[in-house]
Design a protein around this nucleic acid. Structure first.
Length: 479
RNA sequence: CGGGGUGUUGCCUAAUGGUAAGGCGCUUGGUUUGGGACCAAGAUGGCGCAGGUUCGAUUCCUGUCACUCCGACCA
């Protein structure tokens, strides 16, 4: 098997170098290319198609919950960004500024949006007058810019695509319900459609979004044991409303401040998909968002009738699935490898022998399991195999997470667990003191990821100071 | 932003203070075709960028940019 010369472009094995493996997949599965500006990546058609599928799925979910899409400008005047002090403080270090229009210096510099709370607030202040104007359930799909120091494709790019929901509600209760509802929406999308197990939790105060009362987040564990925050949902209370002077008249003719939320997820999810499901043969895509769900590989395609049959099956299956036939003159073996690298969930092989038997071969990407399917009820067989991929990769990811989740009572136990098992989720109790949070990070290397909504006691006292514990916290190294 | 590594054609790698070599890929023709096929003939780069040293630099020096890894910070 081993060959001296390099026959084809290989993907670095993830056990050898996980970071290189990740980069190889991004490049070799044709997801991205680098551009001439650091941290700004070109999302190539195959990568962008994944994003489009994610976008469509989520957009449908948002609209089903009553949200409307809008589009805000990409520039924010400095004075507007400065209105909410915690918010600016949080974002100022990574904001990109426009200082000139043509050759003229601008009288006020404009920031390229790192997020659009301020723009939404300015607009809401203009359009919200009465309780009859509430709730406002807006969302926008756009790109934002954050001048990151360290960049990686999908995981941390200086410009990234995302959606940001911004809603206004008459009461705190309604706004909190919205915050939780959207967290659940994201969680369902990740679990069902991305086949990615997630932990729902709330961020510790030090880790909250700049300007938020509460930040909820979904945390997923990657294959290498590092955590990735894949979505967030914030409850703002009326802090922004006060800073931006947004008020409405309630039923009793009294002026009130509305309560606000924002929630978002980004192209980072694609990085999460790669690092959750990918293997040494390349990408493994969850069927729900795979640009190609079924690739048809004609075998002995020069033989009479093979290509015609392949095309016939494509036409038939296209009614229900995203299907491609590869009729190029590459060898079947080459095609098998190619579409495995690209993560296509199901491969359909059709050759003279199959045609004779009125059947075909279906192979699932994640386990290369081969089944023979009759052409008579092919749609059902394909649907079944796609489901098998979704369930298979979900279970594999869940198993990895469970294998890498450790309950610890003390910092010594945390250090020992990490040393013995490698990176992963640590479940440990915390007193609520920021000093302890910092010390745990400094001394064990894992930071607080979230306080899981589903609390489970793993001890009585804080793993750091030994005082009575308030919460069980999930700790990990993170991307 | 601090510390390390890298930059030669589409990809991988070599050599060299005297003007770039090979494999893969690509093109054409033929033979193949159920796990990255084979043969033959072709095409493709001046060595990230900018300065400097030198008769002369891809090679030496300086700077810069990008990629990458490890930290700190962040979706």
């Amino acid at each position: 098997m081993a060959q001296d010369k390099k026959m084809v472009e290989q993907i670095t094995s993830m056990d050898v170098d996980f970071a290189q493996w990740y980069t190889d997949i991004c490049k070799k599965a044709d997801l991205i290319d680098y551009s001439s500006v650091k941290g700004c990546m070109i999302i190539r058609p195959y990568g962008y198609a994944i994003w489009e599928n994610i976008q469509k799925n989520l957009d449908d979910r948002f609209k089903a919950l009553g949200h409307e899409n809008v589009y805000m400008p990409m520039f924010i005047p400095e004075s507007l960004l400065n209105k909410e002090k915690e918010h600016v403080a949080g974002f100022a270090p990574e904001v990109a500024w426009v200082t000139h229009g043509g050759s003229e210096k601008l009288t006020e510099k404009l920031c390229v949006r790192p997020t659009s709370e301020t723009l939404f607030c300015e607009h809401y202040a203009n359009i919200i007058r009465s309780y009859r104007d509430l709730p406002k359930l807006y969302n926008q799909w756009c790109s934002v810019v954050r001048w990151e120091k360290t960049t990686r494709p999908f995981l941390r790019s200086r410009e990234f695509l995302w959606q940001e929901g911004h809603t206004m509600h008459a009461t705190a209760e309604e706004a909190i319900a919205e915050t939780v509802q959207m967290l659940n929406c994201y969680a369902d999308f990740h679990e069902q459609d991305l086949a990615m197990p997630v932990v729902k939790g709330v961020k510790t105060p030090s880790d909250k979004f700049a300007g938020a009362e509460d930040t909820y987040a979904l945390e997923a564990l990657m294959h290498d044991g590092k955590a990735l925050q894949v979505a967030t949902s914030h409850y703002f209370g009326d802090g922004f409303a006060k800073a931006f002077d947004i008020q409405y008249t309630d039923k009793d003719n009294k002026l009130q401040y509305p309560h606000q939320t924002s929630w978002g997820c980004t192209t980072r999810m694609i990085g999460g998909i790669i690092m959750t499901h990918g293997d040494n043969n390349g990408l493994v895509l969850p069927p729900a968002i795979a640009p190609i769900q079924v690739v048809i590989i004609p075998v002995q395609q020069h033989k009479e009738g093979v290509l015609e049959k392949a095309e016939e099956l494509r036409a038939r299956l296209s009614a229900k699935f995203r299907v491609k036939v590869d009729a190029s003159d590459n060898s079947p073996g080459w095609k098998f490898s190619e579409y495995e690298m690209k993560g296509v969930p199901v491969r359909l092989e059709i050759g003279p022998r199959d045609i004779e038997n009125n059947s075909c071969v279906l192979v699932t990407r994640h386990d290369r399991n081969k089944t023979f399917a009759s052409l008579d009820n092919l749609e059902e067989a394909v649907a079944e195999q796609l489901k098998a991929v979704r369930d298979g990769i979900y279970n594999k990811a869940l198993e990895n997470r469970e294998k890498r989740t450790f309950d610890c009572k003390t910092m010594e136990e945390i250090t020992a667990a990490l040393a013995a098992n490698g990176d992963g989720f640590i479940r440990a109790m915390w007193c609520g003191d920021e000093e302890c949070e910092d010390r745990i990070k400094a001394e064990t290397g894992v930071g607080s990821r979230c306080i899981p909504l589903e609390q489970e006691s793993v001890g009585e006292v804080c793993a750091c100071c030994g005082k009575p514990a308030k919460h069980m916290v999930l700790w990990a190294k993170a991307y």
